[in-house]
């Protein structure tokens, strides 16, 4: 393969060269999918099994052990009031994942409903709804999220609502585009001719066709929603600081980072990045299988 520049004259050598290149790319993808799957499995196990199996109090304060660097006893070190960071990270991941999944599901339900209505009804309903979507999209969604979250007392559900209400827009666009494309198919004509109502056409013929797209959008949104939770909590607007979430952990570690203690920031940071990239990697592979024409970057 050192002779990569071999032109069309090297006909006999082209075959093996091409085949090995393709295998390289495929194996890279396989490695990515497997790594993602293993990381997601590890995350799920940690989140589901650690709290019931390890009967330790994540809130236990031990001021004699505050800000200890990573050691065998505390693999991730301890925070500024002596809580074990590994345990805090696992509990934090639990909350962040819950927020991420709940927000992504809510946003997908809203987006699918709005997109399907706009696409199926068409006409002025479609125009009004899509202009509203454009208007909402023009506001930076972190800003809009902050506005929404300010309306509630701090807690898990306001964060879910804030992230969901700012993230249904892209799903609505995807679903509407797909519904528009399905709507002009002859089998919809056949259903109309068979006496089906608008509702029946939408629910029986259009929605089943867009559900795979909506499901993929939902999975791809989980990492995004987790990042938003972290961002909101980091800004001090999301979850109350006593609730361990990955965002609140990074936020409360800010002070110690300036004092040279790196571990209270690094480990929660890794806990944000690794599972979200794993989910995005697996969803990306799913999208490639589902729509091979559109190989593209991570949609984050």
């Amino acid at each position: 393969m050192t002779d990569a520049g071999a032109g069309p004259t090297a006909g006999t050598q082209d075959g093996p060269v091409w085949r090995s290149r393709r295998t390289d790319r495929q194996s890279t993808r396989t490695v990515r999918v497997r790594t993602s799957a293993v990381l997601i499995a590890a995350t799920a196990l940690a989140v589901l099994l650690v709290p019931p199996v390890v009967q330790l109090d994540q809130q236990a304060v031990d001021l004699s052990a505050k800000l200890l660097p990573p050691s065998w006893e505390h693999p991730f070190g301890t925070d500024d009031v002596g809580r074990d960071l590994l345990l805090r990270c696992v509990y934090g991941l639990r909350v962040s994942l819950l927020v991420g999944v709940a927000a992504a599901l809510t946003a997908t339900v809203i987006g699918t409903a709005v997109g399907a209505c706009a696409g199926a009804l068409g006409g002025w309903v479609d125009r009004v709804v899509m202009r509203l979507v454009d208007t909402f999209s023009s506001v930076p969604h972190l800003l809009l999220g902050i506005f929404i979250i300010a309306l509630f007392r701090p807690g898990v559900w306001p964060v879910v609502i804030s992230v969901a209400l700012t993230h249904w827009l892209s799903t609505a666009r995807i679903v509407r585009a797909e519904v528009l494309s399905l709507r002009s198919r002859p089998y919809i004509d056949a259903a109309v001719s068979g006496g089906a109502s608008r509702w029946r056409v939408t629910v029986r013929h259009l929605l089943p066709g867009v559900l795979p797209h909506a499901a993929l959008a939902a999975v791809l949104m989980i990492p995004h929603a987790m990042w938003h939770e972290s961002a909101l909590s980091f800004l001090g607007l999301g979850l109350p600081t006593r609730t361990a979430s990955l965002g609140t952990l990074v936020q409360s570690a800010r002070g110690s980072l300036l004092a040279g203690q790196w571990w209270p920031t690094l480990f929660p940071g890794l806990f944000i990045i690794v599972p979200t990239l794993a989910i995005a990697g697996l969803a990306g592979a799913w999208r490639e299988r589902f729509n091979p024409r559109r190989r593209s970057e991570l949609m984050l």
């Binding site: 089998y187 004509d189 056949a190 259903a191 001719s193």
Partner: peptide
Amino acid sequence: RTAIGVVFQQPRLSSDPR
């Protein structure tokens, strides 16, 4: 609508694949 039965040109496109 149902007083008129329609047969379309392309059966593949005029039947819901599900």
